[in-house]
């Protein structure tokens, strides 16, 4: 797992993906930070955090798109799959590499926090809980993106598929509001990533949501392992 993790981190930085990801991440969050906090004179970072959710929908698939699709296309997966390592550790190595990139991106909020603390008081506990929340959501997104990347050998297909899939998780909310069947509505709300995440930006640290995001992550990583398992046995 360590070898794959280190290789992927290296590959992120030797290709342009890491720089594009971080640059776009910083520019957009920086814009909202400048507008809603600095210009508006507010110490409440919740608008930065709600923007991050949307950024993740579009940027996480970019991060995960080539992780498996490129291996398949370049036939390098044969090297991984015939090496004395388990499928789980291959998947997790790649998962944690992408998560590390996300971590580097999201950690910018601590710099925003420090800047704000010059002008006023910052609710550090809220900031930290928001920070953990975006990592949990982003972590689940990465697992979904990784799964989609394992299904195709086309990077672009994996990226578009990932974005569409994550947008669906986001749109479930809007759909739920229009559904009149109570149990279905409840189910859709239960599945909604955004309403769960929104709670966090309001400062509510809901343990069931934490579990929801972690189980989504585990589930999709498990699916990815199954994709390879199934291909081997087909």
């Amino acid at each position: 797992m360590g070898a794959i993790y280190r290789r992927e981190i290296g590959a992120f930085f030797s290709s342009s993906i890491a720089y594009v990801f971080l640059a776009v991440f910083y520019v957009i969050t920086g814009f909202f930070f400048a507008m809603d906090n600095l210009a508006a004179g507010s110490a409440n970072l919740s608008s930065v955090f709600s923007t991050m959710f949307m950024i993740c929908i579009f940027l996480v698939p970019i991060l995960t798109m080539r992780l498996f699709s490129e291996e398949k296309k370049q036939k390098t997966e044969q090297g991984l799959l015939t090496a004395p390592v388990s499928l789980t550790s291959i998947v997790l190595g790649k998962y944690f590499a992408a998560l590390t990139m996300l971590l580097i991106g999201v950690s910018i909020v601590f710099i925003y926090g420090v800047i704000l603390s010059i002008f006023g008081t910052v609710a550090w506990m809220t900031l930290i809980s928001n920070y953990l929340a975006i990592l949990l959501v982003g972590g689940a997104f990465i697992a979904v993106g990784l799964f989609i990347s394992s299904l195709t050998e086309n990077q672009l297909g994996a990226a578009v598929g990932g974005i569409v899939c994550l947008l669906l998780f986001f749109l479930v909310d809007t759909l739920a509001a229009r559904v009149s069947v109570p149990w279905l509505q409840e189910l859709l709300y239960y599945l909604s990533f955004y309403s769960r995440y929104y709670e966090f930006t309001c400062g509510i640290f809901n343990l069931s949501s934490v579990l929801f995001f972690i189980s989504t992550t585990v589930l999709f990583n498990f699916f990815t392992v199954r994709v390879f398992e199934k291909r081997r046995w087909s």
Partner: peptide, 19 residues
């Protein structure tokens, strides 16, 4: 199974760790 954007040395180091 070669990673084209790696150097020979870093690739072989990766395989060393992988195995």
């Amino acid at each position: 199974p070669l990673y084209l954007d790696m150097t020979v040395k870093s690739y072989l180091n990766f395989v060393f760790d992988l195995k």
